[in-house]
Write a protein that binds this DNA or RNA. Sequence first.
DNA 1: AAGTTTATTGACTCGTCAATCAACAATAAC
DNA 2: GTTATTGTTGATTGACGAGTCAATAAACTT
Lengths: 195, 195
Amino acid sequence: MPKLGMEPIRKDALIKATIVEIGRTGSLDVTVSQIAKRAGMSSALAHHYFGSKEEIFLAAMRHILSLYGAEVRGALAVAEGDEARVRAILRASFSPGNFRREVVGAWLNFWVLAQTSDGARRLLAIYQGRLRSNLLAPLRGLAGSRAGELAEALGAMIDGLYLREVLKKGTPDGARAARMALAYLDAELGRKNRA
Amino acid sequence: MPKLGMEPIRKDALIKATIVEIGRTGSLDVTVSQIAKRAGMSSALAHHYFGSKEEIFLAAMRHILSLYGAEVRGALAVAEGDEARVRAILRASFSPGNFRREVVGAWLNFWVLAQTSDGARRLLAIYQGRLRSNLLAPLRGLAGSRAGELAEALGAMIDGLYLREVLKKGTPDGARAARMALAYLDAELGRKNRA
DNA sequence: AAGTTTATTGACTCGTCAATCAACAATAAC
DNA sequence: GTTATTGTTGATTGACGAGTCAATAAACTT
């Protein structure tokens, strides 16, 4: 049975299974066995490829972060003008790909993980830094000296909307969340609000 | 040694110790023994008074929630006019009593707990409901039909600011957080912003 | 064909922790 | 002064889970 070149396939399956399991149970108290089982292998194999549970978690976190980063980059690439850039970031943050139950659940738990694990904290700091500078650049043109506070406030708002989504029952409504963040931006830029 | 009437004292000590330990470790993975030790008793006694670890957590959560609720009520009592009421809520949310490391850390973890525990979810839902209606009443007078979305957005912003505070290193800066939330309100109400 | 590397797992070790229990101590009640 | 009632803990139980290991097997190398 053993085919060669399994490593990336197994790792990938484990990462995805990790996100699903964390999102499903809503907690980091998932056993390596649960993850491995969902990924269709033994727990020993999971340890073989990742070495430790923490490494599995970090890999999953990296995966989510890089998906999000790619989406933002893609949206920025086609946005023309400062305001369009800010809007693109907000929309990307609540796109169907990122704003999914399991993903949002995983986010929340990674936040907790960042309290304990240096690796996780570092990853999250990188993400926050990138988000901040992505927002800051266009905001400087729009809001001048208030750009700094605005960028942070927008970041907090995004995180808060993620956080609140977790507790709701139904399917996440990314459009609604995006509208809320955009309304904030409109207000700050002195635009008229109205749906 | 055994004096009578220890129950409330012991329970109180356990609740406070729980919040400290959760805040300190940044995780719900605190053992009953750790909590009991910090509270100056054996783990058996903790079980004796609370029955289970989950009950201890819920009691700690109730404690934090009720402190926060009391602070908001107090601030509302002396606020005159709609705008002052909204501002009072925001200021109370970031008051030094609530916006402390351990407390904020505990909040984050209770959020996670709410994913798993029905009791925790219920408590959090009650808190969110109250916050929402507290905001909604004055906002109706200020923002009319947009009050609903505004209340939710402000709630998300508060949660987001809490969330972000956890990852920072130094002492939480409640004043800064409050300023950010108030700036948002100002923007939505068409006021001029400037510190 | 013999040896090496990669894939894979079941069984095992070792630690941890929630929860229980038996026992003991002090106070109150009768 | 015997009988609850309340407070208190050390020791124990029972489960569970991360990580290790020995063993097996397919595939590649020479």
